[in-house]
């Protein structure tokens, strides 16, 4: 067994190495953009040196061209990895596991299905395995110092033109999926300004990221990249504060593995309280300003 871990940028190196360690096989890392020194246990770091991530049709070909000698090809679960990895799986004739959360052996993995209501144990029947991995489900990796490095030229022929560049993460806040604290707001936030003032304000007081429910995103009060849940981002921070969030199965799917969950909701029977370590039955319009007041550094 030997794995190739696909890092889109250097921030994914440590999270991916967690999976490498859990797999218990030697691994190389293919770093698509940027450069880094520490490989967190990688035998070799392949540096593609791409300026931007190419569209999936081209990128899949590029990745497949360097993946020949590996039994496993894995990327951290994200929208960009889910865009390309199924194409890579086809090119390598690999069985694919989406959102792996546990390794039972080199061919057997666990993953959540039906919005996290059920954990499926899946075996891969093909020689090669492709995966996207929820890295927050694995133990942190330790730095191992300078890795062996080699440049690789990825040929990524694409039939797609990107006519407007990807927007950049907003407001200098930490990336939701890697933040230690996430503050999320739901439907009762009146408008985008109120959402930003209360949810954004509390997040800033805690140095955290901002999340939202689908209801908040659909009504335009929160940006789409803030959606947490079955069909949005999956987060597992040290502290998750849900304000005005009812706790639908679809939302819980994205946050119930957080270490400490706080729910603020006027309805004491809201399902969110079933997963909350600490529940506060109070109007968020009074509770959040009071919290900001006490928690501001």
């Amino acid at each position: 067994m030997k794995a190739l871990l696909i890092a889109f940028d250097p921030s994914e190196l440590e999270p991916l190495a967690r999976f490498g360690a859990a797999l218990g096989a030697p691994f190389d890392v293919l770093l698509l953009t940027g450069s880094a020194d520490d490989g967190y246990g990688a035998s070799e770091m392949l540096l593609a040196g791409l300026a931007t991530v190419p569209p999936a049709d081209g990128l899949a070909k590029g990745i497949a061209s360097v993946a020949e000698g590996y039994t496993h090809v894995a990327a951290a679960a994200s929208m960009r990895s889910k865009d390309v990895m199924p194409r890579v799986a086809v090119l390598l004739d690999a069985g694919m596991v989406t959102d792996a959360i546990a390794v039972l052996d080199g061919k057997t993995f666990q993953r959540p299905i039906v919005a996290g209501s059920v954990i499926a144990t899946v075996t891969v029947e093909t020689e090669r395995v492709a995966l996207t991995v929820r890295t927050s489900a694995f133990d942190p990796a330790t730095p191992t110092g300078s890795a062996n490095k080699r440049s690789v030229a990825l040929y990524c022929p694409t039939a797609v033109a990107r006519t407007s560049a990807e927007s950049q993460a907003s407001g200098g806040r930490p990336d939701l999926t890697q933040a230690k604290v996430v503050v999320s707001g739901g439907r009762p936030l009146k408008d985008a300004g109120t959402f930003e003032k209360l949810i954004g304000g509390l997040a800033d007081a805690l140095g955290g990221g901002v999340g939202a429910t689908r209801a908040a995103v659909d009504s335009g009060i929160a940006p789409n990249e803030a959606q947490v849940g079955q069909t949005g981002k999956i987060v597992a921070p040290e502290l998750y504060i849900a304000a005005g969030v009812s706790g639908s199965t679809q939302h819980l799917a994205g946050m119930k593995d957080s270490k400490c969950i706080v729910a603020i909701n006027t309805d004491g029977d809201a399902p969110i309280f079933e997963v909350a370590d600490f529940g506060l039955v109070e109007d968020l319009y009074t509770a959040i300003p009071a919290l900001m007041e006490r928690l501001r550094p």
Partner: peptide, 10 residues
């Protein structure tokens, strides 16, 4: 929709 917002492809 992307991890950080939105992009346009043609």
């Amino acid at each position: 929709e992307t991890d950080t917002g939105e992009e346009v492809l043609e």
